[in-house]
Design a protein around this nucleic acid. Structure first.
Lengths: 232, 232
DNA sequence: GTCTATAAACAGATAGAC
DNA sequence: GTCTATCTGTTTATAGAC
């Protein structure tokens, strides 16, 4: 039953549904937590940006802290739909030849670079994660399990297929971390990178230069570690 | 003239000098700004940790913001005395052979890794910088000019001497940024790295594994980019 | 479910005694 | 230079009308 079946003049703007309010709050929180930090962002500010009121945060999320967890879940969801295609495909790396695996590995880094450096949504997400890395909360656990670990695992499998090293060895895992570091530094260290390069932003051309460099680096490192195929 | 020439019982603990108070405040601020963020840290908390009182912050630094700048200056000072030896040496990279330059470049990364990953002081510093990267202030300018730019410039010169590429080209600068990213990721992404590796901390052994991997990567990438020496 | 009003705690800055 | 007390503004959370 509608609360206000006949109100010809009172409700000039249709009231947002509960779900719309919820999502608007999450979006606003994601942006503001990333841009200013959790503590520096007031619930009033979030509510204002979401066209809602402060009390709605307590109502929907139990409080500011619950809103942070919801934002982390939203990040995982976005990442799954954008980048997931490459990673979640059922393709078994063990059936690939070394060259095919190397090609796939390079593609994964390409996808990562282009999402991270050239997608508008990545802006808020990267900053949110950066702040969680500085001071981990339950939100980081959500992002770690939903994104970080699956991606890194997949990369290790491709690396193993490309080089012949074990997918779970410390050496493999550390190596993939160094490779990931190459890319994410441009996002996390953006402020310093831009100054040093004399760039005002990272546009598509610049992203291409970066991902080309990363691609070449990955290929050089794989080549240096590739093991001779057993001739048995 | 002493304020209290004869007070046998009143002053049980000798009063800290102005400089001692100043330094204690800077140290406390550096740690707390890094651990909790600037906005989440109250001046009362800083004063308590420094065994001083709130009003002393305004007196010595003009306010909370001035304390942040002083912390950034302290970081540059620490970095200069610790790592500076490697970078500031008057050695001209252009007089080096390609092999010597490559060796020096590898050493610079080794020094960076061991400072970053195995030095206790690096803890507070890295977190402080991480937060400045998320939300740059005047403090980042101080650190950029005092540390980031000189280090990166020096690396580019060594790279140029090792490969024959130009020290100021975009390709060189981007490449060195990817190489730096390999290392710093273990510090900035520490929370995720530890989970993924199943480590509880990065001790000396682990730092050795990481810097060994980075060393091998750098050599592989240099080798893949090395230009044939002109035979003229 | 949404919104206004308010409660209770805490922030940074400062005045003035010492 | 240090310290206590206080001013002014802002914070999250909540009670209760609608």
């Amino acid at each position: 039953m509608a609360r206000n079946p006949i109100s010809p003049s009172k409700a000039r703007r249709p009231l947002a549904s509960a779900d719309e309010t919820r999502l608007a709050l999450i979006r606003a929180a994601l942006k503001l937590f990333g841009a200013q930090g959790f503590d520096a962002t007031s619930t009033r500010e979030i509510a204002a940006r979401a066209n809602a009121n402060v009390a709605s945060i307590t109502y929907h999320f139990g409080g500011k802290e619950g809103l942070r967890a919801a934002a982390a879940e939203q990040i995982v969801l976005t990442l799954r739909t954008n980048e997931g295609a490459l990673l979640a495909e059922s393709l078994d790396p063990r059936t690939l030849s070394a060259d095919e695996a190397e090609g796939h590995l390079v593609s994964v880094f390409d996808a990562m670079a282009s999402f991270l450096l050239a997608t508008p949504e990545a802006e808020d997400i990267a900053l949110f994660i950066l702040r969680e890395l500085a001071q981990p909360t339950a939100a980081l656990d959500i992002i770690y399990e939903g994104m970080f670990r699956p991606t890194h695992e997949r990369m290790c499998q491709l690396w193993a297929a490309a080089t012949g090293e074990g997918p779970d060895s410390e050496a493999t895992k550390v190596t993939l971390l160094t490779l990931i570091g190459q890319v994410v530094y441009f996002k996390f260290g953006r402020a310093a990178v831009l100054r040093r390069m004399g760039w005002s932003s990272i546009d598509e051309d610049k992203a291409g230069l970066i991902s080309g460099t990363v691609r070449a680096n990955v290929r050089a490192i794989v080549a240096s570690r590739r093991k001779p195929v057993p001739t048995a």
